[in-house]
Design a protein around this nucleic acid. Structure first.
Lengths: 255, 255
DNA sequence: AAAATAGTGTCTGTAAGACAATATAAC
DNA sequence: GTTATATTGTCTTACAGACACTATTTT
């Protein structure tokens, strides 16, 4: 056993100069992508999960994922998974972390490059099937400490396949760390939104209430918001609707 | 060509339930790790590079790297590369980014999980060989904009193998974004250091001069520094030596 | 004493938190 | 008018930048 491992290892190391076809037969880790698709529903962070039809973890819920083909980039594989399994294109999608522990997949050696996607809740309305669940994410830690999270759907807590709970926890951690200085909150909202909407997003992501006044001042001063001139009437005084001003179109644009 | 790709792809996707040994023979991406080992020399950021003996890019310099074996974790592979090729253990080592473009390795399909390591310059004194160069990193962009960097050794600019320039640029970008809120500056210094030392680290990493007064106040107020009681005499008034106070040993510890 | 660096004290501008006051809609 | 939310204005506090001043060493 030890000897076999040593010999295989040495052979693989010897390919520094070349990777001929026959060396592809040497066992090397399989490579997969997993996508943490986050959205906001009822003021709470939610994640898209798929019910697994096959072993391992058949019947359990897991993140949408798939193997990386030899003729596609890793980012391309993530986009393909998002399109194929979630029916989504052109949404915010960013690399999260690569999970490479030995025992993370009972089928064998599978390293997974995790991505996280952010979409407005409206984008998910169509893609609701029986095996698709959008589960509420409950984060039992504060700040960017990190750690496991809990997922709830239909009133009960879900146990996720593989190390997907850890992947999801890492995604929440990343999002929390990023929302304060990067324009990612907009990705969870429709094109037009009020400041109260955006504040609710930040509060849901960060897990604690935010100061309303300084939030308004900060966002308005940041130049990231462009007023649309329109308002949205709720029960009382209507709030002004804004849209995200992309960095490239910083100037005024035709109405 | 198209048909063959289609068939292989489908076969690989069908392994959702199992990964039997014979399916390992289906071509799947090779997985490697690359380590960006950063240090500080003469007040400038430096990176450890290895002269490549073999093709491709024979004679050029590249980051230390290696393939991930099936019997080790990805992080373990990074540690092995760091130990084997740099003779270093127990240093700061963190995952950086996974580079998965199709054409990044002329030998074939190789996805690389990049790590970055931070070591004090003293740790590299021993491991100086002919094929090892510690090149100065020149960063032509400000802030955390990102982009290509330049590497200089022996007065001339180096051209790096593969996409290693991009990997290095990403490491610098990550370090710049992290040094302001995470205790990583210490990793580039010996155990005991003065506030001027630490300021020099921040200035070298960030590429611009920092305010001395507020830096002192901020660091002293952060609780991350523990005075050693000792001083280090330079040409004139000696400065107090501090050590990094790790979060877990927040209390006083026996002298 | 002069020079050079370490460290302290103080003033100022900026931005966030707190909170009061005003504006605009539905009812 | 009353109510509820949106928006603006003001006061206070915290902290970074700037700079003057003091402290401690070598020469």
């Amino acid at each position: 056993m030890e000897l076999a491992a040593e010999r295989r290892t040495d052979a693989h190391d010897a390919v520094d100069e070349e990777l001929p076809d026959n060396l592809d037969r040497f066992p090397h880790p399989h490579l997969a992508v997993d996508v943490v698709l986050l959205t906001l529903q009822a003021g709470a962070l939610h994640v898209l999960l798929l019910r697994r039809a096959n072993a391992p973890f058949a019947g359990a819920y897991g993140l949408p994922g798939g193997f990386v083909h030899v003729d596609e980039s890793v980012a391309g594989a993530a986009e393909r998974v998002l399109a194929t399994k979630c029916g989504l294109q052109g949404v915010f999608l960013e690399q999260l972390f690569t999970f490479g522990e030995l025992d993370r997949d009972p089928r064998g050696r599978v390293v997974s490059v995790a991505y996280y996607a952010l979409v407005p809740a409206t984008a998910l309305a169509a893609s609701t099937s029986r095996d698709v669940v959008v589960a509420r994410v409950e984060v039992p830690w504060s700040g960017t400490v990190g750690g496991p999270v809990r997922t709830h759907a239909d009133g009960r807590q879900l146990r996720l396949a593989f190390d997907h709970n850890r992947v999801l926890g890492t995604a929440v951690q990343r999002l929390r760390g990023k929302i304060d200085y990067a324009p990612v909150g907009f990705e969870l909202l429709p094109a037009q939104f009020t400041l109260a909407d955006l504040l609710a997003v930040h509060e849901a992501v960060l897990g604690r209430s935010q100061n309303k006044d300084s939030f308004r001042r900060r966002l308005l001063a940041s130049g990231q918001l462009a007023p649309t001139g329109r308002t949205r009437g709720g029960a009382h005084r209507p709030a002004a609707l804004y849209r995200f001003r992309s960095p490239r179109s910083s100037g005024r644009r035709p109405a």
